[in-house]
Design a binder for these strands. Structure first.
Lengths: 231, 231
DNA sequence: GCCATATTGTGTCAATATTACGCAATATAC
DNA sequence: GTATATTGCGTAATATTGACACAATATGGC
């Protein structure tokens, strides 16, 4: 048993991605206090006593940015070089989330002087070890897109197929074959057609599609592993 | 910033798997102290100040069981229902490790009254939320076997091909085609033949093979994702 | 010593999955 | 009404996966 009282503090951080207009965004806050005042960083903070980790993330996100995510999962726990408070060792549990930026109004309060969506490709240099965390989250997002239907969290509930295609090619960073992609999604049955159409500018109007959740759940239960790798 | 001093304690736990003789084992300790005295549990304990998480796991494993793993990665961080110490909220960072049981002598000391390898299929009911953690670790092991060469950590540096086959079919819980499996491993180039042979009991003597690490590293860098799913 | 037995080592073919690719349909912009 | 942009589909070539059987080589038992 520990003889010396433990001085370690537990914090949470969230890497929240948004997507819009063929651009991937990450949600950042500007620090109001501390040595790293005015530096951009991930939303997050210390966990309260008797609070679960996940509710701590949700609370901090709400407080610092006004956002609540539509998807949130644990990413990794960093317990090494984090030195938030010079007097104490900090263990920080990071989370990875998704939300549609346009569905949320940003309201920075508390520790956050500002909150903003940055294009991932143009994000500022971050405080602490947050650059590394963002990078890991980005890799996780890319990997997971291939075998979990998390991309739908970044679109409206119905969408033209081209939106889904663009989301995938933007996040994965390479073109995908439109026809094969559509075939895969429809054959697997995770995307289904609605009877609505939209016409945006020129071109043939697009049918609107939606994520078929019940079908996906069935697949998942049957042990099927999605394979959405496409050339 | 937190007004009330944080009372949360940080612990680590390790799920260490071993393999021998077509059996998968998990390393457990019997608690010496506490309310749950004499219950079997995962090795682990509180993190010391200024200690990294990984070194805390290694230290606890060494102290409680005498084992040092040949593979260790972070698994998941539990921050909810763990109530190790009734006065404090505990966040426990779990790790997942591999080692050959026969390469280690078990030496329980400190918090552990005993340390033992249990067949995973016959493990006792564990203290805390450790049953759940073992289950998650097992799933991770099964999943990761398909796309990372971690199985080799459970075999000697050279081995007959049948050992590798048995390891896979044991851990995955289903038969695999001997010929297709061998073809895949050799074609990918992650396993190579040595010039040694062994003869064990009857039957044609087996060539000894070894993991081709440099080849695997090259594959990994080139972005190739192993696919070892086999019917 | 010889034969029964057990285990290793290898190749082919069919079924399935992936990839590449082009053209017709339908709307808007001018 | 014509040019243009975008959606919606189908097919052939190729690559991968999966099923399957028999020869080779040792030991164990008599």
């Amino acid at each position: 048993m520990a003889q010396v009282p433990q001085q370690i503090k537990v914090a949470v951080d969230a890497v929240v991605f948004g997507y819009e207009n063929q651009q991937l965004f990450v949600l950042l806050i500007k620090q109001r206090y501390g040595q790293l005042k005015d530096r951009w960083a991930l939303p997050g903070g210390f966990v309260l006593n008797k609070e679960t980790l996940k509710s701590a993330v949700n609370r901090e996100l709400k407080e610092e940015t006004g956002v609540s995510t539509s998807y949130l999962e644990q990413l990794y726990t960093f317990g090494d070089d984090v030195e938030r408070d010079p007097r104490a060792h900090v263990v920080s549990v990071s989370y990875f989330g998704l939300v549609r930026p346009s569905s949320m109004r940003l309201r920075p309060t508390g520790d956050a002087k500002d909150a903003k969506w940055f294009k991932l490709s143009h994000k500022p240099d971050l405080a602490f070890d947050h650059n590394k965390i963002v990078q890991i989250a980005h890799q996780r997002l890319q990997a997971k897109l291939h075998y979990r239907p998390i991309g739908f969290q970044l679109l409206k509930s119905t969408f033209p197929f081209s939106d889904l295609e663009n989301l995938y090619s933007t996040i994965l960073g390479h073109d995908i074959d439109r026809r094969n992609f559509r075939k895969r999604m429809l054959t697997l049955g995770i995307v289904e057609e609605t009877d609505k159409k939209v016409s945006i500018g020129r071109g043939r109007p697009a049918n609107l599609f939606k994520f078929n959740k019940s079908n996906y759940t069935r697949l998942e239960k049957s042990g099927t592993i999605l394979n959405l790798y496409l050339a």
